[in-house]
């Protein structure tokens, strides 16, 4: 969905098409979030007429899939991997291990007991 992609490449870390896509989704979600929350409010408000709520439901489901928060997935900023990501470090488990052993992550220390 190239219409969501930034006109000028703006990722500073490792980038492949998957990370670029994920980045576009994040930005699309950020832009559409107020609208989504407004629709969600209308849907959840039982004091509003049923018709209004049904229309809001339709509108919410018909929004572009890139504006959905569930489309966003944390990816590794060093290798773009999508699985085994430590969210605190934004890294895949193997890259995390390498960086930690190299001492690039402040406060991270190999456990031994």
């Amino acid at each position: 969905m190239s219409m969501f992609r930034a006109k000028k490449f703006d990722i500073g870390c490792f980038a492949n098409i998957k990370t670029i896509r994920d980045h576009s989704k994040r930005k699309a979600f950020e832009a559409a979030e107020p609208e989504r929350q407004a629709l969600r409010y209308i849907i959840r408000n039982t004091t509003l007429p049923a018709r209004t709520r049904a229309i809001a439901q339709l509108q919410l489901t018909q929004m572009h899939c890139y504006t959905r928060p569930t489309q966003i997935r944390n990816r590794c900023i060093l290798g773009g991997k999508g699985r085994g990501i430590l969210a605190d470090f934004k890294m895949s488990r193997y890259n995390f291990r390498l960086e930690a052993l190299a001492g690039n992550l402040p406060g991270v220390k190999k456990a031994s007991w």
């Binding site: 990722i11 994040r26 979600f29 950020e30």
Partner: peptide
């Protein structure tokens, strides 16, 4: 205890936090 959906309005917007995941090109 009527559901007025106010809990949606009370939620913080998480878009800015999510969108700043990847470091930007400086």
């Amino acid at each position: 205890g009527i559901r007025t959906g106010n809990k949606i309005l009370r939620q913080k917007l998480k878009g800015p936090a999510l969108a700043s995941y990847y470091p930007r090109k400086v």
